[in-house]
Amino acid sequence: MMQALIGYIRGIGRRTVDRVWRMGVAARFFLLVLLHSGTSFRRFHLIIREIFTAGVLSLIIILVSGLFVGMVLGLQGYETLQTYGAEESLGVLVSLSLVRELGPVVAALLFASRAGSAITAEIGLMKATEQIAAMEMMAVDPIARVVAPRFWGAVISMPLLAALFSAMGVLGGYLVGVVLIGVDAGSFWSQMQAAVDFKEDIINGVIKSVVFGIAVTIIALFEGYDAPPTAEGVSRATTRTVVTSSLAILGLDFILTAFMFRGV
């Protein structure tokens, strides 16, 4: 009995140490990526290529999801606001929810599962097929040549995708609220403009999406780079990327929201 308890506690301890150790390795990896970013900026087409794979290829899912989230917000918001006779505030509800929270968060979650998993799988496979080792043998640093361009490509793409998501969402809310249900278009926009502040809401939303972009990308890159070079290892790493980065997004969102909108 006592033995089992001690074993259990020891298990917890070992797992905690492992996690902390892994986080330390990931942090060092992050620093390494930043240190080796020079090459990617001197040869910007490397980043452009990655903006294409991370950003352009995620466009469809981001735009469609944004539109539908906005439409649902319009529909649900109208139902609730109507009870208080405040359906003119629909624009406020839709835009603030999107710009402050849903835009950055949902776009980042979608990005993690669309682009993050692809990054992990690609780098994991490059490692499994010895492409990373081959690059090292050719005196080319894989962190500078493979990892850093992907990092910057994704970090640049993320805020753009989040902004597109929010913009599509507002349009979706407009479609349902104004065009379909018939809320007054003038008060929809004017109340929205009176309530949404550029610095407090929009810039903060962009800052959030940049932070999420960094978190998702570094997790995806690290998991890929750290994956055991086997089929099973890569598939596990891909799953871990999606799970870890989703949790990281939600956790970071709470922290950032607490800092940004405290007392407002």
């Binding site: 097929t129 081959a134 043998m137």
Partner: peptide, 10 residues
């Protein structure tokens, strides 16, 4: 260095 299966950049 020539790797076992070529290790070409895919």
């Amino acid at each position: 260095m020539l790797f076992q299966f070529g290790a070409l950049f895919t």
